[in-house]
Write a protein that binds this DNA or RNA. Sequence first.
DNA 1: CCTACCGATCGGTAGG
DNA 2: CCTACCGATCGGTAGG
Lengths: 217, 217
Amino acid sequence: MISSVKNRAPRSVRGAHTRQSILQVAVQLASQEGLEQLTIGRLAAKLEMSKSGLFAHFGSKEALQVATIETAAQTFVDEIIRPTLAHAKGASRLQALCDAWFSYMERKVFEGGCFFATASNEYKSRPGPLHDLLAAKMKNWLRYLAGLIQDAQARGQLQAEVEADQLAFEIHALFMGANWAYQLHGDARAIAWARRALSQRFERLAQRGLLPPGAAV
Amino acid sequence: MISSVKNRAPRSVRGAHTRQSILQVAVQLASQEGLEQLTIGRLAAKLEMSKSGLFAHFGSKEALQVATIETAAQTFVDEIIRPTLAHAKGASRLQALCDAWFSYMERKVFEGGCFFATASNEYKSRPGPLHDLLAAKMKNWLRYLAGLIQDAQARGQLQAEVEADQLAFEIHALFMGANWAYQLHGDARAIAWARRALSQRFERLAQRGLLPPGAAV
DNA sequence: CCTACCGATCGGTAGG
DNA sequence: CCTACCGATCGGTAGG
């Protein structure tokens, strides 16, 4: 079916600007309260515009939710993926990515902590298009992590006997754990614990000093 | 204030039984969709009773949510804490606890995966009494984990240089990571990855073979 | 981008 | 434990 409703294009530069403003607020709200609590009425009230005016930008609540996820994904790429591309492939880039992730959390890029932690937890046990979209995004993220690990292994900077998927899972689990504890208890020790666990894991896996000095922060 | 509404006691044996039936359904629903989506109307429809009849058992939505959390806590204790008390204090009990946790997930005690993973994620960035209750429960859980670690350390079964809070955080992060991936992707490899990461961590921390043989599963 | 609506559902109440 | 309600809010529509 050809849906001009779900993939609504902005009709003007001004419309696109308004749409972006809406989505920036939506991303912040959803990172704290989830995508289900992101109601059109509350969002419109925050933006001091009418429900129907806001609604017209998206066409359905689900389209608003999808656009919110895509906006958060853009921010995630800009904050975490893109800066690390300046680093050499392998251990250096992997380390930069981990640092970027902790920085992203400490700087509170999203008010409610990692947007994707909130959203993927919200839909992890509920079928539907939002589950599928988030599961696909998270799978890509873990694949990307595993790819960086394999790069480091191919360069002899990381022991090859550890399965890349296994290590990617561990790294991701420490990110999620740090985000969870930091948000729930407001205790920054969780970030320090995750950093230390990661650096110890990396140290053990580093081979023959090929990891750049101080790389395992 | 003396609140006979929030701490409503069942007026009869039959009333207590109905209340328990309601809460069992509530716990399953909330583990999948969260405590906010646990609406009185949906719960009443599932139980084929009237909204107001169900409502009368609790007095407010928040009281229903609190009772649901306490019910899930009971199940958690029965499934994970209590069985491990049969094991000797120290590494043995710590290991039994980890095994019990993975078993609890694999047996899908809660349909949506770990109830407390869902609930604590839902309220981690939102102030209010439910946040505070869940944060307190999770703090107790991590304290309990850290206590088991300290017991093992005091017995010379686990190296003492690792901070108990640090290791408890790591163990919990692997539990949360396994639950997250298993629920989101339905991929049991996540459980295997978490088990392996844990057993490797324990192996490295075991001293002088004092850890019972095969204890680090 | 707005006002003015719609039916459905929310948490909760009255009264039995 | 029920029927019969209440005002508020939900996602969404009509028409401009």
